[in-house]
Design a protein around this nucleic acid. Structure first.
Lengths: 130, 130
DNA sequence: CTTGACCTTCACATCAATGTGAGTGTTTAA
DNA sequence: TTAAACACTCACATTGATGTGAAGGTCAAG
C-alpha cells in the first residue's frame, strides 16, 4: 500500500504520515522507485498514533510508548527501563487527570444545556397556554 | 489581587494570564497606575480555563463556553441563540469522544504496566528461588 | 507520447500556547 | 533614598502539529 492509500484508509494526511515517519513513529519500506510501501498493519498503528496524539501526548512520548502497545503483547517485555515505567506511570496519571477534567467540563456543559433547554420548553409551554 | 498573586494562586504564568486576557478569556480592571486588578473569583475562572486548555480545547471555543459555565447558573439564560446551543451540543459530543479515546489509551497503558510489572515480579521471584 | 494522478524532497507558512527579554514605570521595604 | 520586586507594553523566539506549494520523478491509460 502506498502513502495515498494509507492516508485514505486512516484519515491522516500524506504530509502527516511523512511527519510521523520523520518523528520515528512509523517506518516504511521503499519500492525501487523510492515510493513508500506500507503493510496492512500500518493502518492500525497510524490509527493508534492518531488516537494518542488526539489524546494530547506529544510525539516523543508516543515514540517510546508504541513498541509497548503491540498487539501480540510480547511477553518478552524487552528493554523496559525503570525510567520507561516511570514515564508511563506519569503519563497514565496525566491522562487520568485529563479525563477527569474533561468529564467535569462535559457534565457542566450538559447541565447547562439541560437548564437552557428545559427553560426553553417551559417558555413554549407558557406561551401556548396563555 | 494583582497579576503576580493570581499567577501564584493558579499556577499560570503572568505571561499566560495576559495572553488569556488578550484572547478574551478573562477581563481585568485597571488600577490608577495601570496595574491589572483581579477579584477572588478570577482564581476559579483561570483554573477552569487551565482545565479546558489542558483538555485540548482551543481558546476560541473556551471563549464561547465560559459565559455558560458560570457558577450562579443564572436561570435568566440571557441570549442563548440556537447556534450557541448547537455549538455546545457539538462540543459536548467532541468532549465525549475525546474522553473515550483518552480512556482507551489510559487503559492500554495500564494494561501494559500491569503486564510488565507482573513479569518483573515473577522474574525477581524466580531469581530468588533459583 | 502526452496527460493526470501518483510519488519524492525541501522549504516556507501558520496557529496556538508559551518563553524571554528589553525598556520603562511603580511600589515596598531596608 | 535607594534597591528589589513587581508591573506595564512590545516584540521577537520557539515548539508541535499541520498546511501548502514548488520542482521534479514515475506510472498507467488514452
Amino acid at each position: 500500500m502506498r502513502i495515498g492509500k494509507l492516508a485514505e484508509r486512516t484519515g491522516v494526511s500524506r504530509r502527516l504520515l511523512r511527519y510521523y515517519e520523520e518523528q520515528g513513529l512509523i517506518t516504511s519500506s521503499r519500492a525501487l522507485n523510492g515510493y513508500r510501501e506500507y503493510k496492512e498493519s500500518h493502518v492500525d498503528v497510524v490509527l493508534q498514533i492518531k488516537g494518542l496524539l488526539d489524546a494530547g501526548l506529544p510525539t516523543r512520548i508516543i515514540q517510546q510508548l508504541l513498541p509497548c502497545l503491540d498487539k501480540p503483547q510480547t511477553i518478552y517485555v524487552p528493554n523496559v527501563t525503570p525510567e520507561m515505567i516511570a514515564t508511563l506511570q506519569c503519563e497514565q496519571a496525566r491522562l487520568s487527570e485529563r479525563i477527569e477534567s474533561l468529564t467535569r467540563n462535559r457534565d457542566a456543559i450538559a447541565g447547562y444545556l439541560d437548564t437552557v433547554l428545559s427553560v426553553k420548553a417551559a417558555n413554549i409551554q407558557s406561551r401556548a397556554t396563555s
